[in-house]
Design a protein around this nucleic acid. Structure first.
Lengths: 214, 214
DNA sequence: CGGCCCATTGACAGGCATCAAGTCCGGTGG
DNA sequence: CCACCGGACTTGATGCCTGTCAATGGGCCG
């Protein structure tokens, strides 16, 4: 991966690139570096002994992942899209933590950017009906999806495969496909292309996500 | 609750008691205090807009919950059994964090005692088959359950109701009941009383939990 | 153009939710 | 000491949601 362009930010940080489905770090490896996403989308993966694959989180630009709250990474991080990131050594990250703790009297806000998505995923997967889970996932990520462009108001890029969504929601790709079809037929979302998403009826989307509507 | 006995530990900390099903703190309240459990079992509760109740974690003696990684508590904490705990103010907890960070070059280990159970719950609930989930839950807590007594080797106190277990595993009490019956009939566990548990075949329990066996 | 992976659709079976009784157990009060 | 009561647990019958299997379609890349 080092044969690709490695840019230098104006803070002297090294901006690293990664291709889609490239691994940033493996579950179980010692957590030497914090990965700060600058651009693109990443996913957290956990494999069970029987080969069951779970996507435990999606991460977006600005998130810091691989925090050394544990001596080893608790999940494998892979690029969903091509992305860029910046590395922070464990010790440098610790110093930033102490500074923010002392100066602002609070923890580094970034400490929750990793565990918060996982916490919310637990709540989402804990719902029974698949449509509720799908809508809850969409609500939780739609505001962080990149916009398709200035000329396409309300249209988001949606680069997640249905396989990833299924592994996130603890179901199958077929069921995801049927759920999305239902949302399209009810004019709650639209998909002008496979990797495009428009939320047409956000109120109803959130109502289904909260369980108020079926 | 202050009319109950409040003991003083030899460190000058105040040991607080709580009765079963008493609330320690509410989701959304500002996280002023960290609760360190000294004895007993607690549960984390999250309610959805439609009234759906989820148990997002069980906590045991030694765990610290309500950490100020977020300005507000992210779940409601209730006592499962009668329990005791010690309060740490947010600032005092921060100081301990900075000290451990500087002296030992690592974060306070307790920072993971709260998020780790939630992370593991996500993995458990993400499994499809109910029996797998039940066994995974048992494996994850059996070593932290209090022993029934020196004269009962291998017997644990098991004070969790099937309702709590069902809300933890995203299923119903009836299904939990049938799952436990199956585990009893297969001699994987035994329950001499409703609130007692013996793991008779731990290897098989773990095999089912991992998905290797059905 | 061919191959591959992903998405789609249908048929079918099965696991689990739901509903409804009935039982057990601990606690309370007479 | 015993009757009562409420909550939790148990068990069975039933139906639906969703997993599974199989086949097809479609887009992307070499």
């Amino acid at each position: 991966m080092f044969n690709q362009a490695i840019a230098q930010t104006h803070f002297g940080e090294i901006l690293m690139p990664a291709d889609a489905s490239e691994v940033l770090f493996f579950e179980g490896d010692p957590s030497e570096y914090v990965f700060e996403l600058r651009h693109g989308i990443a996913r957290g993966i956990n494999l069970s002994a029987d080969g069951d694959r779970q996507v435990t989180a999606f991460f977006f630009a600005g998130d810091q992942i691989g925090l050394p709250v544990f001596p080893a990474y608790r999940f494998t991080a892979e690029a969903v899209t091509s992305l860029t990131y910046v590395l922070h050594s464990r010790t440098r990250w610790h110093e930033a933590l102490i500074r923010s703790c002392r100066d602002q009297g609070c923890l580094l806000p970034s400490i929750s950017t990793e565990q918060d998505p996982m916490f919310r995923r637990g709540i989402i997967v804990g719902r029974r009906r698949i449509l509720t889970r799908i809508c809850a996932l969409l609500v939780s990520i739609v505001d962080r999806l990149p916009k398709a462009g200035p000329e396409y108001a309300g249209v988001c890029r949606f680069p997640l495969t249905q396989i990833d969504i299924a592994d996130y929601l603890a179901t199958t790709p077929e069921t995801i496909c049927r759920g999305f079809r239902q949302l399209r037929e009810r004019r709650i979302i639209a998909q002008p292309a496979r990797d495009m998403l428009i939320v047409q009826n956000r109120a109803l989307l959130e109502a289904i996500a909260s369980g108020a509507a079926q």
